[in-house]
Computed example of a mutant assay.
Amino acid sequence: MGLLRGVARTAVVAGTATAVSNRVSRRQAGRWQKQADQEEANAYYDQSQQQQQQQPQQQYAPPPQQVYVAAPVPAEAPAGDDMQSKLDALKQLGDLKTAGVLTDEEFQQQKAKILNS
């Protein structure tokens, strides 16, 4: 019984570590994407400034035209992956409790850790 409980605890810890690692990876990828987008915007701005300086200035500018731009659609947060990993961890935890590997107290502690992460 002691060996099985140790294996179960290791499985819970490994599952939690995997979930945390995945979350950190997604957050880092988001930061890299944000940095790449900012660099692209800066390059576009610099290019447009150079083009404006190269074009001769007109004495009279034509009247400005109204341009309608659609509002950007916000990207969906990758919360689905995070939620799915939590659900998987909770299911695994429930299976361990049902099998009698974890006590009620251990189950509640591990469940709180998963839900608060």
Rank of each mutant, 00 (worst) to 15 (best):
G2Y: 15
G2V: 15
L4G: 14
R5A: 10
R5Y: 07
R5M: 06
R5W: 10
R5H: 14
V7S: 07
R9Q: 10
T10V: 08
T10P: 01
A11H: 13
A11S: 13
V13E: 06
G15K: 09
G15S: 14
T16N: 02
V20F: 03
V20W: 03
N22G: 13
S25C: 08
R26C: 00
R27L: 13
G30R: 14
G30L: 11
R31W: 14
R31C: 10
R31P: 12
R31T: 13
W32S: 12
K34S: 14
K34D: 13
Q35M: 11
A36V: 08
D37M: 04
E40T: 10
E40M: 04
A41N: 06
A41E: 07
A41L: 05
N42W: 14
N42A: 15
N42L: 15
A43G: 04
A43S: 08
A43R: 09
Y45M: 10
Y45C: 05
D46T: 12
Q47W: 09
Q49E: 09
Q50F: 05
Q50S: 07
Q51C: 06
Q51P: 08
Q53Y: 10
Q54H: 03
Q54A: 11
Q58C: 10
Q59C: 05
Y60Q: 14
A61I: 14
P63R: 11
P64W: 11
P64F: 12
Q65L: 15
Q66T: 15
V67D: 02
V67E: 09
Y68L: 02
V69I: 05
V69E: 08
A71G: 05
A71C: 01
P72I: 04
A75H: 07
A75S: 13
A75D: 13
A75K: 14
E76A: 14
A77H: 08
A77C: 00
P78W: 11
G80W: 02
G80C: 01
D81H: 05
D82P: 00
M83W: 05
K86V: 03
K86M: 09
L87N: 12
L87T: 07
A89R: 07
L93Q: 13
D95G: 05
L96K: 00
T98V: 01
G100Y: 02
G100M: 02
V101L: 00
V101H: 01
L102G: 02
D104Q: 02
E105Y: 08
E106F: 00
E106P: 01
Q108C: 00
Q109M: 03
Q109Y: 03
K111W: 03
K111V: 06
K111I: 04
K111L: 05
A112S: 11
A112W: 13
K113V: 03
K113H: 03
I114K: 01
I114H: 00
L115I: 10
L115F: 05
N116V: 01
S117M: 02
S117Q: 04
S117L: 02
